[in-house]
Design a protein around this nucleic acid. Structure first.
Lengths: 223, 223
DNA sequence: TTAATAAGTTAGACTTGACTAACAAATATA
DNA sequence: TATATTTGTTAGTCAAGTCTAACTTATTAA
């Protein structure tokens, strides 16, 4: 049986991996708020379990098996978030912490029942795709707001990062999925963007935030 | 923060404590399937946390604080069982294992929401009382089947023990809450009871089983 | 292209929660 | 009441998962 710690490492590695399935040790250490040696020793365990390819001083590479196991954990997390919002009346900014705990429950029945009750949803309350029982993820067809050009008008469709702080921030700015945003300006130096959306004219969003907002274009020049 | 291990010990101690709030070390070791020294060292921790009174070679005594904390854990467990049965369509014999895991979730909101959705139930699917938010338990007004006399007719109202094996056993005998049972005979030697109930004439139940079935009298001689 | 810095590794220590072996106290039995 | 048995305790070990300090390799900048 895979321990909760290993599940947490695997999830972070999956989320932080690049297009070539690679991650650096220090990225994991930073994301998990643990020391580098802790990551190093854990990473060797993951490699022994066949979840990761490990060679001294080389970047880590997540294996097919690793991606499969990670997808199943993420499935549990996102189904839980959806269930909490849709069936238990929680706000989307409240559910992340609870789902972090529930995702470690060992019972496929429990999550499959949630899935059924929810009607087999493909996306969670933050717009992130929910992997199916086989670990297959419907790819997101959206772009990052930070990749948009001035003059474009887009709809906010999903987030590619969730934490309580971030969701509380979005709520404070009255940013919600489904909103229409117009991009006015991008500051070349720090990538700050000036945007407008209902009730908010010329709001400035940091590059970091724009990187995490996934949008769909509806008008203007650009891709 | 109290660890999951400590929560598990506390729950067992609470459940195994006698009317005078006392338990023996070996009873805990047996119930938890761990060694005596493991219990001994844990018990000292619980005592340091003020959950237990510990004196060398004396029986352990659970404190007021210990009972309060235990009741809150049991509340989480039983609310979860009720939610799984009532809102997620599980059978009463399937929910114990899942509830064992969910009871450790740290979020009062999560369980209070369940409570609200269920309409503040006082008893779980096995008939055991659900402690309220203050840890107060509505006492059961039922007697053990093992305390009944031949000639009595009773209704099965609750169980004072739950495990998957036990629930599967009850299902196999078609014993369910609400059934009417007639007591025919008690074997003085091993306390085996001969009883009848719908579809089952002169079924023999062991003393161990009768000890765990809580009933309400509807006819016959006796208390 | 060499020196400085960043990233990754090893060794060794600590905590939690388990264990066995050996011993002490309490209880039961002859 | 003396002995046997059961129950409880102590000491020491182990694995998981964390840490710091010291070291090595890789990368960046002078």
């Amino acid at each position: 049986m895979i321990s909760q710690s290993i599940e947490n490492y695997l999830k972070v590695i999956f989320n932080q991996a690049t297009a070539s399935d690679e991650v650096n040790t220090s990225v994991i250490a930073h994301a998990m708020e643990v020391s580098l040696p802790s990551v190093n020793s854990m990473v060797k365990k993951l490699a022994n379990l066949g979840l990761l390819e490990y060679e001294k001083y080389k970047p880590l590479k997540i294996t097919k098996k690793g991606k499969y196991e990670a997808a199943l954990i993420i499935r549990k997390h996102r189904l839980t978030e959806m269930f909490l919002v849709e069936k238990m009346g929680f706000g989307w900014e409240e559910v992340h912490e609870i789902a972090e705990q529930l995702e470690h429950v060992q019972s496929n029945d429990f999550f499959d029942r949630m899935d059924e009750i929810l009607g087999y949803p493909r996306f969670d309350p933050h717009g992130s795709p929910i992997p199916d029982k086989k670990g297959i993820i419907t790819p997101s067809v959206y772009r990052r707001l930070s990749d948009c050009a001035p003059g474009e008008t887009v709809i906010l469709k999903a987030l590619n990062y969730t934490s309580d702080d971030f969701l509380v921030y979005l709520n404070s700015k009255e940013l919600a999925l489904g909103l229409t945003l117009s991009v006015h300006q991008i500051e070349p130096f720090d990538k700050n963007m000036t945007v407008s959306y209902p009730q908010h004219q010329h709001e400035v969003l940091s590059g970091m935030v724009c990187d995490k907002l996934m949008v769909k274009k509806i008008a203007g020049i650009g891709k």
